[in-house]
Simulated assay, not measured.
Amino acid sequence: MNVRAADPIDGDTARGRQMYDLGETTIFASRTDPRFSYALYVPPKFDEAQRPAELVVAMHGTGRSFIAYRDAFAEFGRWNNCIVLCPLFPAGIRGDGNRDGFKYMLEADIRYDLALIDMVEEVAARYGLALERFALFGYSGGGHFAHRFLILHPRRLWAASIGAPGSVTLLDPTRDWWVGVRGLKELFGVSLDLEGMRGVPVHMVVGGADLETWEITHREGGRYFMPHANDAGRTRPERLESLRRSFAAAGIGVRFDLVPGMAHDGLRCLEPVKTFFADCIAAQRAGRG
């Protein structure tokens, strides 16, 4: 049901919209690729606020707990007048059992970055909003996605929060994607836009006790193994620190939160993420007067 906020609607349509398109919504299939879907939190009175709603995207990890992230961000969305978009990119989408394709943006002919952009444009059309830019959060596998999306499309983001990725892409033009950024033009049709990245507030978060390595160590013969795959560090905190240093060397500022005593737990890390996004929203709205 594509109902713009300003469209006149009859009673039955209004009731259906209230039940399924506002608050914690139903799950929608992507109109451009129905293999993918998403759920939303939409503040029930988003169209009555003094300022247009912002968009926050929360990307799931390998466990695909996208509804848990939607529900965890719902209160934030309500009080900050933000629509929350939580995509679902299922595992094994090509029938091969691959759980990790979305993390690296490219899987055969699938471009996960473009799939997300299509979802954002669909949401903008459904709710009658201009959502040229949005905030992006991802933890674990979602942290893979978040920082690589930032590298490919910085001018689509007003903030990025990167949580505990198992592997990182450093801004190294001497190494091939995904370890470095050599080959972006050939693979994705874009060039590295450092100026654009410098304009995006960036947050990184990882638990101080997130030290298990069984899932993140690349081994020869693995689907995503390549030379230098493990050079950024042994643990997630070490790898995220390597990403921070790579960004800093390129003039990209980062707010870095190492959460004491926290192991690998995406829902536990959300308070610093919400604080970061709230600060960014306040700065944006103050800048607009």
Score class of each variant (00 low, 15 high):
222 G>W: 06
165 P>Q: 00
187 L>G: 02
200 V>N: 09
204 M>R: 06
164 A>V: 00
156 R>S: 12
175 R>Y: 11
221 G>V: 07
181 V>N: 00
213 T>P: 09
166 G>S: 05
220 E>C: 01
153 H>P: 00
163 G>D: 01
176 D>H: 13
217 T>L: 07
185 K>W: 10
213 T>R: 12
179 V>M: 04
218 H>D: 13
177 W>P: 00
220 E>H: 06
190 V>A: 03
206 V>N: 05
162 I>W: 05
175 R>Q: 15
158 W>S: 10
155 R>G: 06
201 P>E: 11
166 G>V: 05
209 A>V: 05
191 S>W: 01
164 A>T: 04
157 L>I: 02
202 V>Y: 10
202 V>H: 08
203 H>N: 10
206 V>D: 07
167 S>V: 10
219 R>S: 07
183 G>M: 03
198 R>G: 02
152 L>F: 11
209 A>H: 11
189 G>D: 11
163 G>I: 01
159 A>V: 15
159 A>H: 14
195 E>L: 02
178 W>H: 08
193 D>F: 01
169 T>E: 13
174 T>I: 03
162 I>P: 04
178 W>L: 09
201 P>C: 11
196 G>C: 14
194 L>W: 03
165 P>N: 01
159 A>Y: 15
180 G>K: 04
152 L>D: 08
217 T>P: 01
161 S>Q: 12
199 G>T: 04
221 G>K: 09
173 P>A: 12
197 M>Q: 13
193 D>H: 02
190 V>D: 05
160 A>Y: 11
208 G>P: 04
174 T>R: 14
213 T>W: 08
188 F>T: 01
163 G>L: 05
185 K>D: 15
221 G>F: 04
217 T>C: 00
212 E>N: 11
183 G>P: 02
182 R>Q: 14
163 G>Y: 02
192 L>C: 07
171 L>G: 13
166 G>Y: 06
183 G>I: 01
191 S>Q: 14
213 T>I: 15
194 L>S: 05
162 I>Y: 08
223 R>V: 08
190 V>H: 01
195 E>R: 01
156 R>Y: 12
214 W>T: 07
184 L>P: 06
181 V>D: 00
154 P>W: 02
213 T>Y: 07
171 L>P: 10
222 G>C: 09
215 E>S: 10
172 D>K: 14
175 R>F: 11
182 R>E: 06
161 S>L: 12
160 A>D: 02
200 V>E: 02
203 H>Y: 08
193 D>A: 01
171 L>N: 08
181 V>S: 01
201 P>D: 13
210 D>L: 07
153 H>C: 04
216 I>V: 14
193 D>V: 03
